[in-house]
Write a protein that binds this DNA or RNA. Structure first.
Ligand SMILES: [Mn+2]
Ligand SMILES: [Mn+2]
Ligand SMILES: [Mn+2]
Ligand SMILES: [Mn+2]
Lengths: 224, 224
DNA sequence: GTCATAATTTTGATTAATCAAAGTAATGCC
DNA sequence: GGCATTACTTTGATTAATCAAAATTATGAC
């Protein structure tokens, strides 16, 4: 008899987190500090968890270097990203929740929805390609489109660009962005960039001008 | 500062289970055996859990007698029943799952869906009054309609009756019932009752006759 | 009333996930 | 190269939920 042990919600969270960090940041290994930090656990907890995850073949761990996901680790991580983003889409599109409140909801639901229900949801939603924040939804097979890596900060002055996605998941920033109209799909132009003042001045289609600090501008990905 | 500790999924399962048992069976207290049995845990586990639940004021526990829910225990139990049944309804009505496979799905999802999402779901579904098995859905305030307590076994011969609900949640029985057309809303007549053979012969609107053992007949609630 | 049986409780152990705090290694500045 | 700072690991403890098996209490048949 073979009993299949489902990975716990904790394992799922760790693997999703590590996969996202590994896609964001350069190096071969994801360092422990980043992991502990993004999951809000103490460094010691992260270290001991990495040993367990290594024992269960989700990743390989090099002391004082960091971790690298195995193929199955990547697969599970990617599946969690798919779940999370499809659920977020459902919460906004079908139930009409605000995009600033869906992240935490999806963070829980992603662990209890079955593969079957998820695929039904995908069909029901019409196979959406990205979530309400503009993040690409991986396919069932685990393929994910690359986002343009150009932020609003490092793109050309005076050129009309399309907002692709918002990187900050915090509800405060999302509420602010929504109020300003900074949402995926909207067209935007940089009017002025002031290095001294640390601001860029922006023009959103038909709306009045407003400005954004460099740090916030880096949270907006654009294309075109 | 007051931090609100969310009851764990385990606590939620115990309270839902105890509430359902207390509605089904007579006595003032729900005995330990029933609880351990319906949750599939050992008797010792149930006993030790009851002490914890008592400490947290969800119920009162009398050694070798059983437990009685407090007002807050009833409230949480009822909320779980509402969640479970609304989710089941969603899974069948919106996503088109079969009624034999929704129970286990809802058993997980009920713990991770927020109050907000649940109420949106309720509106989206048009405030359904009962789940796909014919079980009444409690209101947000915790009020639940009483089911008719008449089973197919103890009702009149030759009288046309309406099927109200199916008590067995097992997927095998549900698949069988569906095939036979034994579903809430259908009209049914008892043709014959044979005490020796332990069967009743049935006629479902326009379908051919078939028979059912007493034990199975007790799983079907009817009215009218 | 006396036992056998059934129901329940107790005891001792295990597992996953976590923290605090102490210890160790790496990095990098002068 | 030495030392301060930062990053990471180790250790020891805790909590919730569980089981197995032994101990206890209740129940029912005679
Ligand atoms: Mn999560
Ligand atoms: Mn998102
Ligand atoms: Mn449940
Ligand atoms: Mn049901």
């Amino acid at each position: 008899m073979f009993i299949i042990v489902m990975p716990s919600a904790t394992v799922e969270n760790y693997l999703k987190c590590i996969l996202m960090l590994s896609m964001e940041c350069k190096g071969a290994e994801v360092p422990m500090g980043l992991i502990a930090n993004s999951l809000g656990v103490t460094p010691g907890t992260a270290t001991s968890m990495m040993k367990n995850l290594q024992r269960e073949k989700w990743l390989t761990y090099k002391s004082r270097k960091g971790v690298t996901l195995t193929a199955s680790g990547k697969k599970l991580g990617m599946r969690m990203i798919r779940r999370h983003r499809l659920l977020e889409t459902f919460l906004v599109e079908t139930l009409g929740l605000d995009w600033s409140e869906i992240h935490d909801e999806a963070e829980e639901l992603e662990h209890s929805i079955s593969e079957k229900v998820l695929e039904r949801l995908d069909v029901f939603l019409g196979n959406p390609q990205h979530d309400p924040h503009g993040h690409p939804i991986p396919t069932k097979g685990g393929v994910i489109r690359k986002l343009p890596q150009k932020t609003l900060l490092d793109s050309l002055l005076g050129k009309k660009m399309k907002i692709e996605s918002i990187l900050d998941q915090g509800s405060d920033f999302l509420k602010f962005a929504q109020k300003k109209g900074l949402m995926p799909g909207k067209m935007i132009t940089i009017i002025k960039r002031d290095k001294m003042a640390d601001t860029i001045e922006l023009q959103l289609e038909k709306k009045s001008k407003f400005s954004l600090g460099f740090k916030s501008a880096e949270k907006i990905l654009v294309s075109g």
